Each structure stands twice: as structure tokens, then as C-alpha cells.
Amino acid sequence: MEEIKLFCLPYAGGSADVYAKWRTYLNSSIKLCPIELPGRSKRAKDPFYKSMGEAVEDIASLVEDETNGTDYAVFGHSMGSIITYELICRLYEKGLKLPIHVFFSGRYPPCIEKQGKNMHLLTDDELIQEAVSLGGIPEKLLKYTRLVENAVSTLRADYTILETYGHNPQIQKFDIDISVLSGTNDELAAVEDMKYWEQYTEKSCTFYTFHGGHFYIHNNAKALVEIINNTLVDTE
């Protein structure tokens, strides 16, 4: 069986490392390719993206270089879901090979407009508390000042590109099977909102829910990857 690459895009404040444990459970025919965004880990010295457009253009070039005509899939969680959608739009515009499957996780589609808190405008303390309440920053890490400072900078940069993007009322349908995943107690991705993702495909749209909140992906890695394995391996 030919190798399938799985590109994974993180949530706001997250890095490629959040997907590292998936390698333990992934089918041997699937190669994990977590995408590192600027300002963190091995790209720590690269400046943060200033806009959604800049992020999508950079990631589209990366995917084009990495795939080179081979089959691939894309998984995005939360902010990563929005980047994933805009990424597919950009790849389509450029006439490039599209993924064989897309996984949208923990974020309602861009056609839905919501009035949020404008997280990127919060004070550092407010931003930290929001991240802790959502489960994005474990409370036990707050004693590490430098670590928290870096986390705040990354969160603010990510929320800036997400919140200035706002929403996109135009629904671009693609000829791609998609999966939509969410946590049962996710305040940011209500089940009724997630259902709107089915409007974005001409093909099948399958829904999955997991016990947990917005960061359900951390405590359900094995079950989540099992879905990915079954979906991608069966696609071939």
C-alpha cells in the first residue's frame, strides 16, 4: 500500500508537538506530518503570521513541496480547522492536488459568525485565565514564568490572525470526503454548529463525538487515530 501523508494543523497556541503521540497508533501506511507554525519549537525564530492569508500561503507552499503529487489528508483542530479550510481553497485556486480526506475538529465552519471576546485584545492575565479555563494551559505550569510568557505571545499572535479573519460567508464545496470531530462538552464547538460542515462537501460527511471539552484530542488520542486509520486506509 502506498504511503499517505497526514498533515496536522494545531489549535491557537499549540505546536506540532501536540500530535507527536499519534505516531504510536497510526497505521504504518500513514506518515504523520504535523505542521509547525512560526514562533514556536523549531521555528521559534520565525516571526508570527500577521494574517490568515499569510498563514495559508506559507502552508500551501509547504504542502505542495511535501506532497509532490502523492496522496495526503489534512487534520485541523480549532484554529487549525479554519486554516485547513482556507488552505484547501488556496490549493484549489492554484490547481494543485487536493487531499483525499479532510478532518475538521473542534471548530464550527467559517460561514457561522459569532461575537467572541476578542481574545487577542485581552490583557496577559486575562488571556492566561481563558487558556487555563479551556484546558489549553495546565494550571500547574503557571509557576514557570518564561514558559507562560512564551505561551501568551503565541496565543495572542494566533488569536490575532483568527479573530481578524472573522468569518467567511461564502461556502466553497469540494469533491472531498470529510470527517467532523468534536468534544461532547466543548463550549466553543456546539454540535448544532458543527453540523454546518456538511455544506462544504459534495461527497460524504461523517460526524464523530468524543467525551471531553475543547481539548478532547489530548485524552482520546487512541480512539481518534483509530478513526483516522479506518478512514484513510479504507479510502485506498
Rank of each mutant, 00 (worst) to 15 (best):
M1D: 06
K5A: 07
P10T: 10
G13K: 11
A16L: 04
A20L: 10
K21N: 12
Y25K: 00
L26H: 04
S28Q: 08
S28P: 02
S28G: 02
I30E: 03
C33S: 11
P34A: 08
I35L: 01
P38R: 03
G39V: 08
G39M: 06
R40Q: 09
K42R: 14
R43I: 00
P47K: 02
E54C: 02
E57S: 15
D58H: 09
D58M: 07
A60I: 01
D65S: 15
Y72N: 02
I82F: 14
I83P: 01
I83T: 10
I83N: 03
I83F: 08
T84K: 03
C89R: 14
E93I: 12
L98T: 14
P99Q: 08
H101A: 10
S105W: 09
S105E: 15
G106A: 09
Y108M: 14
C111T: 10
Q115M: 07
G116V: 09
H120I: 07
L127I: 13
L127S: 12
I128E: 04
A131N: 02
G136I: 13
G136N: 06
E139R: 12
E139G: 04
L141Q: 07
K143V: 15
Y144M: 13
T145H: 07
T145W: 01
T145P: 00
V148M: 08
N150P: 05
N150A: 13
A151G: 10
A151W: 13
V152R: 00
Y159P: 01
I161G: 01
E163S: 01
Y165C: 09
G166C: 05
H167I: 07
N168T: 06
I171S: 14
D177W: 02
S179P: 00
S179N: 02
L181Q: 00
T184Y: 13
E187G: 08
E187R: 11
L188D: 12
A189M: 03
E192Y: 10
D193C: 10
M194C: 12
M194T: 12
Y196M: 10
W197Y: 11
K203I: 12
S204Q: 14
F210I: 06
F210A: 05
G212W: 05
H218L: 12
N220D: 05
A221K: 08
A223V: 09
L224C: 02
L224I: 04
N229H: 05
E236P: 00
